[in-house]
Nucleic acid binder design. Structure first.
Length: 273
DNA sequence: CTAAGGACCTGTCGGC
DNA sequence: TGCCGACAGGTCCTTA
């Protein structure tokens, strides 16, 4: 479910409630997530002060006095803040609670259980984070970087920009959107792009993600804002999910849907070359 | 090393 | 109305 903008939005939404608070306890009701929640997790977390909440790729990092919690939302995960008076308001698939000493609860919900909760002394050294590529909104993500990474790569450019070892946070929706905005066909082989095309693509990835963050994250079926209310913005998507409809740019061609790497890709064959 | 496909899960939707 | 298959925002792991 969540792409980077949704994770960023969740992160910002929950941070004010968590920062500088103390964890009273972690209550896990379902340990079977993408990876089992470690048995020692409760003991590690209890009593620790939360220093900071941040994001790396699609992981929400909760910095404790000692170590970090790493929360990934997978496809269908969401977090919400529960006031003490509503502590008993459970929904189906509420898998764990991070309970603060002031009674406020960070509650994690995830129907498909593709999300995960890890602990690491140093998040940057954790095996799931260590090998990740650059942040898309960072200056390190630029045309020269992408160009050099693409050398010798024969995968389709859409698959390539979704590769977390290259650049993080570009999910299936925004990969289609960025390529559409850049006027580049998703089927192009990665190394075949020219310098100007890499520059354009980088620029469009940044724009598309930043716009979505500004809009509070694209709201699709089951994203819940961190305050528990349904998302209020519906970002306008230009191609994603619009198969068979007329392209918004050329207004002549129908948006096509193809499958790449077992994922749906949407594009306009007129506007994207 | 790269590339491709399977795996993990539940919920929803369209078609018959 | 009920059942069944297809599909859904992620990403790791195995195999070739």
């Amino acid at each position: 479910m969540p792409e980077l903008p949704e994770v960023e939005t969740s992160c910002r939404g929950i941070a004010p409630y968590l920062q500088q608070q103390t964890v009273s306890q972690l209550v896990v009701r379902e340990r079977r997530l993408r990876w089992p929640v470690a048995a020692e997790m409760e003991a590690i977390v209890a009593g620790q002060r939360i220093e900071q909440v941040s994001r790396r790729a699609k992981y929400i990092l909760i910095a404790l006095q000692r170590g970090h919690l790493m929360l990934h939302l997978g496809m269908s995960g969401s977090v919400r803040i529960i006031e003490p008076t509503d502590a008993q308001s459970f929904k189906k698939h509420d898998h764990f609670d991070l309970v603060l000493s002031n009674g406020v609860i960070l509650r994690y919900n995830d129907p498909r259980r593709f999300g995960s909760l890890h602990f690491a002394e140093q998040a940057t050294e954790h095996r799931l984070i260590k090998g990740l590529g650059v942040e898309p909104l960072d200056g390190a993500f630029n045309a020269a970087y992408l160009h050099s990474k693409a050398k010798g790569r024969k995968v389709a450019i859409k698959i390539f920009i979704m590769n977390q070892q290259v650049v993080v946070g570009v999910g299936n929706i925004y990969a289609s959107e960025a390529l559409f905005m850049a006027g580049i066909s998703p089927q192009r082989v990665a190394h075949s792009l020219g310098k100007a095309e890499f520059a354009k693509l980088v620029e469009c990835v940044k724009i598309v993600l930043q716009q979505a963050i500004d809009a509070g994250g694209t709201t699709l079926q089951n994203f819940t804002q961190s305050d528990g209310k349904p998302g209020y913005f519906k970002q306008v998507l230009s191609v994603y999910g619009r198969a068979g409809e007329l392209c918004l740019v050329c207004k002549k061609n129908e948006i096509k849907k193809i499958v790449q790497g077992q994922r749906a890709t949407f594009f306009c064959s007129q506007c994207q070359k």
